[in-house]
């Protein structure tokens, strides 16, 4: 998907001033070249300029663009930020672009971080952002964790087994339905089944109930 596809979806919903802002967002004041600090400011301001009210964009429309988003995250701010990141990729050398993505994440608030994580699988050579994606799994902010763990093909496509297993177990720990983890069936492995069984046994020993999703991972977990 390219930035223009996504902008095409977004632009008809924006007023002329906002559309104009979005078309110039991230460019230096002197010309069209991308300026990193202007970009970071625009990336932050997108929340305020574009708005946070979820759009009723249907699943299919987004799927056609290669995006999968939970309904409450289909906001103009998120879609606009994804478009900004995609457009920047077309304007920067790979090295500068990688630094920009890292800066957007590092200095981003929860909404900005979600947008970066949703963009990762759409980029050229997504594997170069593996460290960032793995780091995102360590967050304590649930919506940020869900941005990488849920409705996102990135982990199943690029995570090594141990990292993928940690993500799945954390999803169970934090009450995320495993149906939201993309590619789980394909990446399922015996180590993950063992971890799930051990966790189920830990819960039983503590006198707690066993989340039903654990039985999806390990048939023995319900015993």
């Amino acid at each position: 998907m390219t930035a223009s596809h996504l902008l095409g979806l977004l632009e008809p919903r924006l007023d002329p001033a906002t559309r104009e802002w979005l078309s110039r967002a991230g460019a230096s004041s002197s010309g069209n070249a991308l300026d990193a600090s202007a970009f970071l400011e625009a990336f932050a301001m997108a929340g305020r300029r574009l708005g946070q009210k979820p759009l009723g964009t249907p699943e299919d429309t987004l799927a056609g663009l290669g995006l999968s988003l939970a309904p409450d995250t289909r906001t103009p701010a998120l879609l606009g930020r994804v478009a900004l990141l995609l457009r920047a990729q077309e304007r920067l050398e790979p090295e500068g672009y990688e630094a920009l993505v890292a800066a957007c994440y590092r200095s981003g608030d929860n909404g900005e971080r979600q947008a970066v994580l949703k963009t990762l699988p759409l980029l050229h050579h997504p594997e170069r952002f593996l460290a960032l994606a793995r780091d995102a799994c360590r967050t304590h902010v649930q919506p940020v964790f869900e941005a990488i763990a849920c409705e996102n093909p990135y982990p199943a496509a690029y995570f090594p087994e141990s990292a993928f297993n940690q993500l799945v177990l954390k999803a169970v720990f934090t009450g995320v339905p495993l149906a939201r983890v993309v590619g789980l069936e394909r990446r399922h492995n015996s180590e993950l089944a063992r971890m799930a069984a051990d966790y189920a046994s830990e819960r039983r020993a503590a006198g707690r109930d066993v989340p039903t999703d654990l039985t999806l991972l390990s048939p023995g977990a319900s015993a």
């Binding site: 400011e41 932050a44 301001m45 929340g47 305020r48 608030d109």
Partner: peptide
């Protein structure tokens, strides 16, 4: 500071 002053909250 400019990197933070534009943020939502």
């Amino acid at each position: 500071l400019p990197r933070y002053l534009g943020k939502d909250g």
